[in-house]
Structure formats: structure tokens, C-alpha cells
Nucleic acid binder design. Structure first.
Lengths: 192, 192
DNA sequence: TATATTCGAGACAAGCTGTATCGTAATGAT
DNA sequence: ATCATTACGATACAGCTTGTCTCGAATATA
């Protein structure tokens, strides 16, 4: 009866996969998203061009795979002394992610591409790092008794009000929020 | 002494200029930003390719010129009965702009491009339609006596907290805010 | 008339795209 | 051991866009 637990033929090369992910990571920082090409990625990874196209259909897809894990890790905040400090810590992590981190640079590039490519938009909604991290933060402070008067129903709205201001500052003004601004946002967020 | 009030040589063709702006507007809706090319724009406008490059250096620049005036107009809100209704009206206009309007589609494409092209980022900050409109809204409600306890100093922060949530919903979740959500945002914004 | 600048049109080299094909390598089935 | 199947790196290929350059013609000023 033996069904193939492994598919037929030569197995996918893990070396090639990692080389491609690595190349994309490096090139994003070194040359920027716009200058990155599928051809350049293959050459930098020392990999056949067809091998890239076989497993990914766009540079956005590669970049997402290369940065999603880092993004989630950088946005995970360990609980502190109280709800307000937790929210402040999350907003600080969010600011650092969006303005300083390589994974954040990748996320911004992907979010940008999503604005004029529906396939990338879908892709990005499949792994909503920002939303997931924000929801985790909100669940944490709820477990502490904060936001008691706020119904669970409007969870998406809460996420938007928590993440939106910092996202706006990064995306449109290009300015990183100051610590006092972040703690102010956290205080007002919890005082609703 | 007669200094040239008009520069020497054949003057720029206004017909060609308008034809290019028109072509970009049409193509954005018909084919999307990604499919738009400088070559395609010139052909659609029935204009020489060099003529396009002579006056604009990228499709982003053309698109900004083609949509900035519409954007500013769509984000201008006439004062209503009180501060809260004014803010709600602004947020509603912002939502409609970002999710339904052609000019908003252009703005999202430009903001997206700005995330991986520094020249577009600079360009966009030169004419900050979202920020200007938000500041106008805030100045309006301040003239009504609202936000009295909030110092003028943190104006940028106010703009971010006003615009951020709706921008987040549009850009990352792709969802248009409900009217109750918008009025809730307006109420909380004024209650700080 | 002479000069200067723009116009539409198109040539041109360079680069990327996505697919196809080559011979080779690695794995499972018989 | 041999075969079938799939992935591998490498490369060729047509099609497209890019940005620059050139051409003759048009339209303005001096």
C-alpha cells in the first residue's frame, strides 16, 4: 500500500532555497527593492533562473518568505509590569520594525507593491504580520483587565487605531515617532 | 532692455501636456499602475516619447500632477454643525478618497511606489495632500474651540492619529470603514 | 531672416521577463 | 541494476520597456 510519503524524483534542494532567500535579503538592503530583479536574484544566489521561477512567481513572494519569520519575531513583545507599558512596548517595537529593521524594510516594500498589484495584496493578507502582532498585544492587555468596556466585536477597529498612527508616520511622513509620542498613544489607546 | 517675459523658442504645447495627463488618468483605471509604462503613456497620448521625458522623469511624477488637484478637492470638507460632525465628515471623505476615488487610487499607487523609491517619496512629501487636508480639518475644529487642551506643538502627532486608522484599514486590510466606525473615531479624537 | 526650442516619429543598445531546452544529478519503483 | 521522474545549473530565445539620440518640421523671439 505504501503511498509515497516523499514525492517522486529528485528532491528540492534546500541549499538552493536558502541561497535564494539569502540573496533577496542581501539585495534588498544593498540595492533596494526597485533594483531587485528575478534575474539578479538567480545570479546572486548562483542558481539557475528556472529554479527560481519553479518555486516562486515573483520577487514579492520570495521577499515575503525571506522576511515573514523575522517580522513576526521582531513584533513579539514580552509582557511587562502593566497594560500601558505593554502597549508602549508594542508601539516601540512597531516603530523600530518599520523604520530601522531589515524585515520592516521588506514589509514596507511589500505593502507598497500591494498597492498596485492585487496578487501581492492577497499574498500579504495571507500572512498579516502587523495585524497578528497587534491582536496578540490587545489580547495580552485584555487578559490584564484593560479595555474591559470595549466589545470584542470591533477587534479590527482596535487594531487599526493601535497600528494606524505609527504606520502613517512611517509611510507618509517618513519620520520615526518619539518615545513620548508612543507612550501618549498607548495611554490614549487604553483610555477608551 | 526687454528681458524675455516668455522664453525663447517654440513654447510648450498645452495640448500635449493635457493629453499626457489624461492618458495617465485613463490608464491607471483601465490597466492599473503596474501595467502603465512611459512608452504606453506616450502612445496613448499620441505624443512623442521624448516629449514625455522632457517634462516628467517618471510615471509617478506624471500621476502626481494628474491627480493632486482632484485629491485636494476631494479631501476638502465644508464645515457643518459642530466639531464632531466636521471630523466625521473629513474621515468619511478620507475613506471615500482612499477606497473609491480615482485620485485616491493614484495616491495609493504613489504612496506604494514611495516605499521603494526615494525619489517618489521626496516627490510625495513635496505635496502632502493627506497631511494638508488633515491639518485644515484640525484648524477648523480648533477655530470652534475643540481640542482646546491640546498644545499646538504636536500637530504632526494629531495628524497621524486622525488619519492613521483609516489609512491602515485601507492599505493593509483593504476594507472600507463603516460609518459608525468613522464617527467613533471622530468622537475619540476630539475627546483627548 | 536667424536663432532657439518644442514637436512627433522612430532608431538604437541595453536590460529584464518568462518560457523552453540542454545535459546532468538525485531519488524512488521495478 | 535499470528505468522513470523530478530538480538542478546553464543558456538561448522572442518580446517588451528603458532612456538617449537623431531627424525634419513647427512655432516662437530677436
Amino acid at each position: 500500500m505504501e503511498q509515497h510519503q516523499r514525492p517522486l524524483g529528485r528532491p528540492r534542494s534546500e541549499d538552493a532555497r536558502l541561497a535564494v532567500l539569502r540573496a533577496v535579503d542581501d539585495m534588498l538592503v544593498a540595492e533596494g527593492y526597485a533594483a531587485m530583479t528575478m534575474k539578479g536574484i538567480a545570479e546572486r544566489a548562483k542558481v539557475g533562473r528556472q529554479t527560481v521561477y519553479r518555486w516562486w512567481s515573483s520577487k514579492a513572494e520570495i521577499l515575503l518568505e525571506a522576511s515573514a519569520a523575522d517580522a513576526a519575531r521582531e513584533l513579539t513583545v514580552t509582557p511587562g509590569v502593566d497594560a500601558e507599558s505593554d502597549v508602549t512596548a508594542f508601539l516601540t517595537a512597531l516603530r523600530d520594525f518599520l523604520t530601522r529593521s531589515d524585515a520592516g524594510l521588506a514589509y514596507r516594500a511589500l505593502l507598497g507593491e500591494a498597492q498596485h498589484d492585487d496578487r501581492v495584496a492577497e499574498l500579504l493578507r495571507g500572512t498579516d504580520v502587523l495585524g497578528d502582532a497587534a491582536r496578540a498585544c490587545i489580547a495580552g492587555v485584555r487578559a490584564r483587565g484593560a479595555l474591559a468596556g470595549v466589545p470584542e466585536a470591533g477587534a479590527d477597529l482596535l487594531v487599526a487605531e493601535l497600528v494606524g498612527p505609527v504606520l502613517f508616520q512611517t509611510l507618509v511622513t517618513g519620520r520615526a515617532a518619539e518615545p513620548e509620542e508612543l507612550s501618549g498613544m498607548a495611554r490614549r489607546f487604553l483610555a477608551r
